[in-house]
């Protein structure tokens, strides 16, 4: 540094003056605008256009005509929605538990933590498509595990494309647990040491520190990361399509099949499933966020 900075009284976004709320609001609005503009365009445009297509207002051929026919096949939609929800709930629950304990191991910072850090980070970087391919190679009837254990394809349980959706759930749980761990570590890293040390100095036992310090600190991040994982699981199709059974099919797989079907008339139905998926995801994630507010209020 070479010059003496002169003292000024101009308020900045970084050093707000106590007064002038309007000005502060304007600055805050300007700061948030570069994020809000593209998100608003993409989200509102995307959902709007999907909704219009589902209502038959954006036909590929013929005239636009308002119709809710695409939402009619309720039986099949209900089965698919329940299946989608079950897969998402189970895999997110596993991912949350594994992700939290992974984060604890990483934070604890010994040699084991280092190995886990690298491995979980590697898992985060794998695209789901590749994840599905490799889980398929690992778990299929004559996959790597079956070969390693020397079990014949007939005797190997139907993990891939089986009635339990095991491979699908395993892939989502694997990838999303790494993601959840990454987010929690990011939150905890900056502050955990001081709290943990304070608790330790005050004589808190290891398990008590985990329960009373680590978990409450991690809980909001855990919830938000799990909500993201849940939403992703519900909306993505590659994994369930590659590793799932033929029937019944999750919403996203159904949407993709209808979207790609030979007859053009099925496209509104695909869009309708898109709309249903958005609503379903928003409902569950919204509930989780309300839970988060409760959690804050309660504490």
């Amino acid at each position: 540094m070479t010059a003496v900075p002169t003292v000024t009284t101009v308020t900045t976004p970084l050093a707000p003056g106590p007064a002038r709320p309007r000005r502060r609001q304007l600055r805050a609005a300007l700061l948030v605008l570069p994020a809000v503009i593209p998100v608003a365009i993409v989200v509102i445009g995307g959902v709007g256009a999907t909704l219009l297509q589902s209502l038959g207002l954006m036909p590929l051929v013929g005239a636009a005509e308002l119709s809710t026919a695409a939402f009619d096949d309720t039986d099949e939609l209900l089965t698919s929605a329940l299946l989608s929800l079950s897969i998402a709930v189970v895999s997110t629950a596993i991912a949350a538990v594994v992700g939290f304990f992974t984060a604890v191991l990483i934070i604890s910072g010994n040699w084991g933590g280092r190995i886990v850090t690298v491995l979980s980070a590697a898992a985060v970087t794998v695209p789901h498509l590749v994840g599905a391919a490799t889980v398929g190679l690992l778990l299929s009837d004559s996959g790597v595990l079956a070969r390693l254990f020397g079990i014949s394809p007939d005797a190997w349980p139907a993990l891939v494309a089986g009635p339990t959706w095991f491979a699908v759930i395993a892939e989502y749980a694997w990838k999303e647990s790494a993601f959840i761990a990454l987010i929690i570590v990011g939150t905890l890293a900056t502050r955990i040491t001081s709290y943990d040390e304070a608790a330790a100095v005050l004589g808190a036992h290891r398990s008590a520190r985990l329960r009373l310090v680590l978990f409450p600190l991690a809980a909001p991040s855990l919830l938000v990361a799990s909500a993201i994982a849940f939403a992703y699981t519900l909306g993505s199709y590659e994994v369930a399509w590659m590793l799932g059974a033929t029937y019944p099919e999750p919403l996203s797989v159904m949407a993709l099949r209808l979207f790609n079907t030979a007859s053009l008339t099925a496209r509104p139905e695909a869009a309708a499933i898109g709309v249903i998926t958005v609503v379903l995801t928003a409902a569950v994630v919204g509930a989780a966020m309300l839970g988060l507010r409760r959690m804050r209020a309660w504490r």
Binding site: V42, G46, A227, S236, A271, G274
Partner: peptide
């Protein structure tokens, strides 16, 4: 954006 299933986003936003 987290709530948007990728296929719905692409289905809709691409037209826009």
């Amino acid at each position: 954006p987290v709530l948007l299933p990728p296929f719905a986003a692409v289905l809709g936003i691409n037209v826009v």
